[in-house]
Design a protein around this nucleic acid. Structure first.
Lengths: 220, 220, 220, 220
DNA sequence: TATGAATGAGTATTCATTCAT
DNA sequence: CATGAATGAATACTCATTCAT
């Protein structure tokens, strides 16, 4: 049972941030069991124990809420990468880089799902202004983490850092789509003869990432 | 009053297949300029010069129509790969395989787009029966082409053929999502400071594929 | 009990016109007991015995439906005036013109109500195209009937015909607003001391029209 | 810490009236550029430099605020008429009365707009109590000014004073509706062929008023 | 077969008003 | 008194699908 907040109305910036987080958590909870398209604002509000209109106090549109979720996930991801890359001293090989990068996305299924629909859904009903803000922030972190990558990996040339991140995201999103179709579809994949279509995300993502990074290492 | 032209009613199997093709072509035409979500059955029918209801004579649902399109694209893709792999004799290196595989997906943007939404959209509103038929056929071609790959590439171990195809698709889909967001979003990407988010599909897909295959070659 | 139509689906132009009329009649029925703002599309559809979506087969928007109603009312009004002005031979005095004009609006409360909200509500959610079509038609009938007026009334100078129609509409709308506020308000007007605010439409409209026309007659 | 400025809290009746006036002025300002339906409480509050909730300290509902505006306008109008009718000695002809009455409404577009929606909008969401108070006050001024009219104009019989005021309002409201539809609609009226629908308020109102009063003068 | 009229489920969003702070 | 966060009612419209013609 979650602690109820001590207030009914969030007036301080802290309380407001907290309430925003409550809404994001509610969205996360609902997304755990349903497609993004099937999660309605009403559901999220109900899950958060708030009224529908309150959602619109904190987010201008439904899409902005999901972008908020994505920002959280991206913060977590980049943060984890940055910490890992700052730790330790020596140079990193492709194999070590694989071990560093793979779990960061393997453990973030929601990030994979949100990235998969970012361009086609999330940004559709977004004012240009918040859309740009989001993109700038994302670009900034890509650049920063890409630089760290280049510093720690001798086999990465200038520009390769960002490129590795893009390729990693691409692999994760593409395999995510193969590995976890909508629940209704997932059932069918158990049918005999469909083995070639069954994709176990964790294993395949690791394999592909290792191959990719190894290839880069050898090529450069 | 003279008889209406015989082709107004598609009686023979040939005529039926022809009309089916007309509808698929119409869908292709519409998809060239719009998001899949924005292409309605009515539009497709109108483009084909038929009535809305007629679409449902040839396809049980809107999704089945798009699956039909995807089947065509997959047929073309696998056919091209199979022909290329059957041609020539010697063993294929990672570099040669890259040159063989990359254009097959670079030239098929529609295939990439459809694969991206296969699990989350297309198969959502499909009867289990046609869904299974589609999947069996796909699995079959994956297996067949995968075998061919393994035969021609010494660096591929058993099972790696299908895996390469999966990884290739994953890369293509993931980069597609990054490279071509919905039109409304694409405009924003021109803003300064967003360079790290701009992805040129052709170049990045080739680079990633080469790295991936090279990595496989060296590892195995 | 109204006759049910012999068809379920209106395919012939006649049947379609009939069904359109059924929807307009349903709207009329609902408007008899409620403010225009309180009449929903769902109510109209239910009253017509049709589904909500069917309304949108015949009218692009809710407003277009009400404009259709207004067009009917205007057709009736102008038709009545034209017939009356075509009948009889001699010249018409102000008094006779009053007798001719007044009942035509006294008997059309719906016309008065719709005219009152034409510019502020009805035309708000109308595509420019149908809006223009409506306005051209209205302008045409104003001009035609205005000409007839000028022919039969010596005291009307060129241009006065249309002007009389405008002034008549203005009076009717203005008095309508005074005489028949929303039901919730109407009750209050019975309170003692509010006699100066009670307006009996028929009487006042006749008096004002007679004065107006008499004034015109003497002035010109 | 010094005391906050004394005026931040409106304690004295004077200060309260002042703040009320600030809100009414803000409403006037917003109404100058927008339809009444498009002016929100939030906008008014912002324009007044106050918070949304503060509006409800001074007015029970949004409608009550607009009624307050209307009361101001009516006060100004009746005041002007009363002063004009008290001034001068001799009897007033229809022509002179026209010159006296017409500018009083020509110069009050906001009064016309508010009167047009009084019964259908403003009084909809009003408690009976303030509604009655407003109506009694209005009735009183109608009676008083009507009496003055009857005193100065021989051609007005008992009861005609109030009636003239009613008819004048009716004309003003009706012509207002014709002359100034919502901005979105106004653009269309420039189209060729729509001349019969273009109404210039000032000119038409004067013409109609003169005819009306002249008619009254001759009839009585 | 072909048609296109009829259906009806499904939901984000606004904003006047309230009330905790 | 002043604030502004929270509320929740209320509704037009789309479009895939069906089925009468």
């Amino acid at each position: 049972m979650p602690d109820l907040p001590a207030y009914r109305r969030a007036r301080s910036p802290t309380a407001k941030a907290e309430r925003r987080a409550v809404l994001l958590d509610a969205a996360r909870e609902r997304l755990a069991g349903a497609e993004l398209a099937d999660v309605s604002v009403a559901q999220i509000a109900r899950t958060a124990g708030l009224a529908k209109g309150t959602v619109y106090v904190y987010f201008r549109t439904r899409e902005e809420l999901f972008i908020g979720l994505l920002e959280d996930e991206l913060d977590g991801w980049f943060g984890e990468l940055d910490r890992a890359l700052a730790t330790g001293a020596g140079r990193i090989t492709a194999a070590a880089l694989t071990d560093l990068l793979v779990p960061s996305l393997t453990n973030r299924p929601l990030l994979r799902r949100l990235l998969a629909v970012l361009g086609s859904v999330l940004e559709q009903n977004l004012d240009p202004d918040p859309a740009l803000r989001f993109k700038w922030r994302l670009a900034g972190r890509m650049t920063a983490t890409g630089s760290l990558l280049e510093k720690r990996c001798v086999f990465l040339r200038p520009g390769d850092g960002v490129r590795v991140l893009q390729q990693l995201q691409a692999l994760a999103v593409g395999l995510q789509v193969q590995a976890e179709p909508a629940p209704a579809v997932r059932g069918l994949l158990g049918a005999p003869g469909l083995e070639p279509l069954r994709v176990e995300f964790d294993r395949e993502f690791r394999a592909a990432t290792r191959a990719l990074l190894t290839g880069l290492e050898r090529t450069n």
